[in-house]
Design a protein around this nucleic acid. Structure first.
Lengths: 111, 111
DNA sequence: CGTGTAAGGAATTCTGACACG
DNA sequence: CGTGTAAGGAATTCTGACACG
């Protein structure tokens, strides 16, 4: 179920300097997109930002949108819509699995 | 072929502070194991070490071995042997693929 | 052999502000 | 609105060495 790979992708482990290199964006831009709520890095206890690979991917997407002239506000809405879809899809799968278990249970018990 | 996940795993992106947190080892230990050639972090242009998730995994393995009383020299040999095996396996696959292409080629040309 | 620590310096990151527009 | 920059401070990392054993 590739649990580990997903954890690598979402684990917040990089500081802003590497994200800067990976994305080609300036620190200013990266911090600004955070202020506009487009991504949510974690912080160390002393306040240093930590990013994940998925944050890096998201930043690339954001950069593309910005270049197309889309405003951060719009981008935020798009991201929110995407989150919503994913939540629905996840729940769908979850429900289907649960339903399957229930079916198996009742059939095996011969109700 | 999960090219991307592998890239996340092997990409050197973390500084020693996070590796320290992730592994529970001290900076001293992490740098020492490097000196003993057990892992090979990259460096930024200014000399800061950068580690990958696979380095973190390797450090966990190393820590286990050390606890078992194995010396760094032994651990290095074990790691070398493991690399050797992987190289062989990769070549095997590569050769098999090449052979398959050759076969396809000659059969289709009807020699 | 493997690890802790204090020392001094260099590189990194942070925030709030001035600037342009 | 989105981004650059200089400013000052705080946190991080680096190396070589002394120490114990």
């Amino acid at each position: 179920m590739k649990t580990e790979e997903a954890s690598y992708r979402d684990k917040k482990v990089m500081s802003i300097g590497i994200v800067k290199e990976l994305t080609g964006l300036s620190e200013r831009q990266i911090r600004y997109y955070e202020k506009r709520q487009l991504l949510f890095p974690e912080r160390t206890s002393t306040g240093i930002r930590k990013y994940s690979f998925s944050d890096v991917e998201r930043l690339m997407d954001i950069a593309d949108k910005i270049e197309e002239g889309v405003q951060t506000k719009e981008i935020r809405h798009e991201l929110a819509r995407r989150e919503e879809k994913n939540r629905n899809k996840t729940n769908e799968i979850r429900n289907r699995m649960l339903q399957g278990q229930l079916n198996a249970h009742f059939h095996s018990r011969n109700y």
